[in-house]
């Protein structure tokens, strides 16, 4: 679909038009950080945010989600719960767009998970391109997710006095037609975008000293590396890396019973592969008792296994794991250390 242009001054009107008829989620200022939240006005939107604490995955895959309601008693009964509501997610950066795409593939794999997919299918993603890395933790260029080529409905790039709007889907185009004073992008606009892109390429730097297409191979050869034990000395197994990762989707399932002891709900709750009991089985055997084994598991999942299984990287280089690590474990350092000769 042909790209469009929205004048800078018209963005407010566009977002207000969206707000008039839709639930809109956007990056907002929260203390000294940013968080995706439902907004009521354009002024709440933090257009110049660097990175949110959590990715918008929480809107498709909530931290704590009721998946079943049941009744106890002589004849117990249970009814699955699949809830979803239309939403516009405004201002998603390319790394989070890439992460969402991976989750789409994971939850669509047979058997498909309607709890995720129904929410996802009712969401429109309006992305916001980044001109520079969030901060020193970003390694999205290394993970090749700093430019979004697909996975969005609209993608906005700030060209100074106007936004260049890439149109990814018909749903995105319909919103644009109905709510924005958008014009067709001209040849000059395309040229301006290209110049902007050239500048972006310069401002994003690689931090991993090799092409990450070699990462699966490097991880595959590193099962017995002492690097895992070295970082295990620092790791507290707190799970912050999992909680803040935009591609983590592991969960546990828990039942809660109401105080009337009749009604109850089954919840699916985010879980963490870094917690001690994650790989424990009924007999008490724990297949990843050692902290180093759990760290190796997480890094392999991010850099190798999900890519092999789903064709999409489990790491988008957003840096949230490193940014939120209490003991400053750095993915970039781990990937670099493991690479040996290649890291020269």
């Amino acid at each position: 679909m042909l790209p469009k242009i929205i004048k800078k001054d018209d963005l407010r009107a566009f977002v207000e038009a969206l707000l008039a008829e839709n639930v809109v989620v956007a990056p907002t200022k929260k203390g000294i950080k940013y968080a995706f939240a439902e907004v009521d006005s354009f002024d709440e939107v933090a257009l110049d945010y660097n990175i949110t604490m959590l990715s918008p995955r929480k809107y498709f895959y909530p931290q704590n989600e009721t998946v079943l309601k049941f009744k106890l008693g002589e004849k117990p009964s249970a009814e699955a719960v699949v809830e979803s509501a239309p939403k516009i997610i405004f201002g998603m950066h390319p790394c989070d767009v890439a992460a969402t795409w991976l989750l789409d593939v994971v939850f669509a794999e047979d058997p498909a998970d309607p709890n995720y997919l129904s929410k996802r299918k009712k969401a429109v993603i309006i992305g916001m391109n980044c001109a520079k890395p969030c901060d020193e933790f970003s390694f999205c260029k290394d993970m090749k997710s700093y430019n979004a080529t697909a996975g969005f409905d609209l993608m906005l790039t700030d060209l100074g006095d106007k936004y260049f709007v890439e149109v990814g889907t018909e749903a995105g185009e319909a919103l644009l037609v109905a709510g924005a004073q958008a014009s067709e992008a001209s040849a000059d606009d395309l040229k301006a975008l290209q110049e902007w892109q050239n500048g972006k390429e310069k401002s994003f730097v690689n931090r991993i000293p090799y092409d990450t297409k070699f990462l699966p191979e490097i991880l595959g050869a590193s099962d017995d590396s002492l690097v895992w034990e070295a970082i295990a000395r620092k790791c507290l197994s707190c799970g912050s890396c999992n909680t803040t990762c935009p591609t983590c989707y592991c969960f546990t399932v828990r039942d809660e019973v109401a105080s009337n002891l009749v009604d109850g709900e089954r919840k699916r709750i985010w879980d963490s592969c870094q917690l001690d009991e994650f790989a424990e089985v009924a007999g008490g055997e724990n297949f990843r008792k050692a902290r180093s084994a759990r760290l190796r598991h997480r890094f392999n999942r991010k850099g190798k296994w999900l890519l092999e299984r789903y064709g999409k990287s489990g790491c988008v280089g957003c840096g949230r794991c490193d940014r939120n690590c209490l003991v400053k474990i750095s993915s970039v350092e781990v990937y670099t250390q493991l690479a040996g000769e290649r890291a020269k």
């Binding site: 079943l68 699955a80 239309p86 516009i88 309607p114 299918k121 009712k122 319909a174």
Partner: peptide, 20 residues
């Protein structure tokens, strides 16, 4: 305009048990 409701997945919930 309002976001059009796209098709929701037809398959049932992966969490629906059968009673035995």
């Amino acid at each position: 305009m309002t976001v059009k409701e796209k098709n929701t997945p037809q398959a049932g919930s992966i969490f629906q048990p059968t009673i035995g």
